[in-house]
Write a protein that binds this DNA or RNA. Structure first.
Lengths: 230, 230
DNA sequence: ACCTGAACACCGTTCAAGT
DNA sequence: ACCTGAACACCGTTCAAGT
């Protein structure tokens, strides 16, 4: 067994756009956005960069495709039957995205990037559509559709991203840090702020310690639902 | 006048962390996140990279400091007197951030990045605090403080980021594209979606064309305020 | 049509050397 | 204490050449 033997075997099946995107998602999951490089990709796929460029225009397109793939899967994973109510439908979509961002923490920044990079990106309409269909069934007058669906989308993406940050921060504290430790760390960071400048943030630090991220997240969704139907 | 004369003069005043951050913000404003490189920075400041590293740990810290600077300025720019009501206070903070993101479109992705990179980043607590203080004065019971302030923060950052994307997209269409053209372009992009998959998004495309971004933004803030006080 | 891999331009960062 | 600038490792991307 020479040293070279340990390298990835030469691939036998053909390369394809799907296989490349799949490998990109794996790299992103393993090491975050910094983990996705063409060098890592060529090694994992046992090719040269030219082969990848045959299937994908550039790194940006690959990142977009990976984002699109993961979001589409999350939105498709939903319960088979129709939701009991539009409210339940909203919660289901929200939890689907929450879970996707939890499993793929790099998604949060990526989605924010697509959101702030023009209207023709594929992912935002996909998400807006799902929330929007429930908003319509909520009986909201048409003039309020866009604002209601936008509010849901922006809150869900932002709050889920913050949750993912907490989870990632937990890993920093050691591989077996549990929920209490993570929340404790967030609370501790906020308790360390200047009392004169941050009275509110220090006050809520306690709440952050005692509550479950997912519960808080759903409470936020319900708050916006209350605003929509007010 | 030799070719060399056109290069930036050798700096006479001393370098400082503030001057570096200032130059970084200018580069970001001029060319977005890709415009901030140490090479561009050294040329603009007429130094070598080592000089910059004497004042700043690395690029990430510089980006964070630039973000922090701009957000702090936006939150400080507020009206002198106390707001007429907590609701007005929330709108003022929201519009302050909206304006900052409009003037510095790179802020949107940067803020999302800080949000999803752990609780000890300096900027999110700064924003949470401002919304939180108004939430408290709204008479919300303490158990609901965090959710209410988070909902405001996430909506505002997300929606303002999308607005900034629209503005940036407008510049793409030509230097003198006006509001109608921009909104028309967004509407057109959404109208081009598959009618079977995107009935809602296509329906709201018309609203997007006819409404003002700032009005829609404030309507979203009011929606969340309604949910908070429901 | 699909893949190889050397080469290129550019990037963030370091560090021995200067003042 | 503060700054210089050559050098390094690494990155995305290209392209002439192969099959």
């Amino acid at each position: 067994m020479t040293a070279r033997t340990r390298k990835a075997q030469r691939r036998t099946d053909a390369l394809s756009r799907e296989r490349i995107i799949e490998a990109a998602v794996e790299l992103l999951d393993a090491a975050g956005e910094g983990g996705l490089t063409f060098r890592a990709l060529t090694e994992r796929l046992a090719t040269g960069p030219g082969a990848i460029y045959w299937h994908v225009a550039n790194k940006g397109e690959l990142l977009d495709a990976a984002t699109d793939d993961v979001v589409a899967a999350a939105l498709a994973r939903e319960p088979a039957g129709r939701p009991a109510s539009p409210q339940e439908g909203v919660r289901a979509v929200a939890l689907g995205l929450f879970g996707a961002i939890e499993r793929h923490p790099w998604l949060a920044a990526q989605l924010a990037g697509q959101l702030s990079r023009g209207p023709e990106r594929p992912v935002p309409p996909r998400i807006l559509e799902r929330f929007g269909q429930q908003v319509r069934e909520l009986g909201v007058p048409e003039s309020g559709w866009f604002v209601a669906a936008s509010a849901l989308m922006h809150y869900v993406l932002g709050a889920a991203g913050q949750h993912a940050a907490n989870v990632a921060y937990a890993r920093t504290l050691g591989p077996d840090a549990d929920r209490a430790e993570v929340l404790g760390a967030v609370a501790a960071a906020w308790q360390g702020l200047d009392p004169a400048d941050y009275p509110f943030t220090r006050a809520v630090a306690d709440q952050v310690r005692d509550h479950d991220d997912r519960e808080q997240f759903l409470a936020g969704v319900d708050l916006i639902l209350a605003g929509i139907t007010a």
